[in-house]
């Protein structure tokens, strides 16, 4: 019995070492920028940027095919960090994206929920709790407002509700000083 365990763990160890060594030895030179961009993206894989997931979006950014302002879950902060990384100007969430939509969370109408678990499977951040034939509910804190759960619901009991700013979630905004316009006004 003990020998069997030893044999298997020995085998696994040897293969693990070989694979680990190979991972270093055969490290493919991928664009390191993609990894950096990917690390900034929120990894919700929500697809609101128009790409199938965060990684493809990161690749598109690194190739210069996509703008940095297409990620609503990342929000303003994400755009700023991307802008810092790429040495670009930060710009508001844009062009056909959830246009500066007020941050919202999904709310399930618990009277109508039939417990089909479809929204559970759709949620990229596991912010919905529930079980089959049990009522589901959204953990507002976890919800990124990606709206992916709205479409799968067969009884249309999920609505997006805008979060009103209150003391619990208010944050400092980035300082925005309108240099261009103020320069113009001093010129006059």
């Amino acid at each position: 019995m003990l020998t069997a365990i030893l044999i298997m763990s020995g085998l696994a160890l040897v293969i693990g070492v070989i694979l680990g060594f190979a991972a270093i030895q055969f490290k493919a030179e991928e664009n390191p920028l993609v990894d950096k961009i990917d690390a900034i993206l929120p990894q919700t894989q929500c697809g609101q940027c128009g790409f199938p997931g965060c990684r493809p979006y990161a690749e598109a950014i690194s190739r210069g095919e996509a703008d940095i302002n297409r990620c609503p879950p990342g929000g303003d902060e994400g755009i700023h960090r991307l802008a810092d990384l790429l040495g670009m100007d930060a710009k508001p969430l844009g062009d056909g994206q959830a246009q500066a939509k007020a941050k919202s969370v999904a709310v399930i109408d618990e009277q109508r929920c039939i417990g089909c678990t479809l929204c559970l499977q759709a949620c990229p951040v596991d912010a919905i709790v529930g079980a089959a034939k049990q009522m589901h509910t959204v953990i507002a804190k976890q919800c990124t407002g990606c709206e992916l759960c709205v479409a799968p619901c067969p009884v249309e009991c999920i609505t997006m509700e805008a979060l009103t700013e209150d003391i619990t979630q208010w944050k400092w905004t980035y300082p925005r000083y309108d240099i261009k316009n103020s320069a113009l006004s001093t010129d006059r």
Binding site: A4, I7, L11, A12, I15, I18, L19, A23, F26, A28
Partner: peptide
């Protein structure tokens, strides 16, 4: 012959390892 019952288990581990290794190797080369 003593540990013949470990065959399936160990073979699967080896196969998975080889597949991984092949993937890395091809990716590099």
């Amino acid at each position: 012959a003593d540990y013949a019952y470990l065959r399936t288990l160990s073979f699967i581990v080896v196969i998975a390892g080889i597949v991984q290794f092949t993937e890395m190797f091809i990716r590099k080369t």
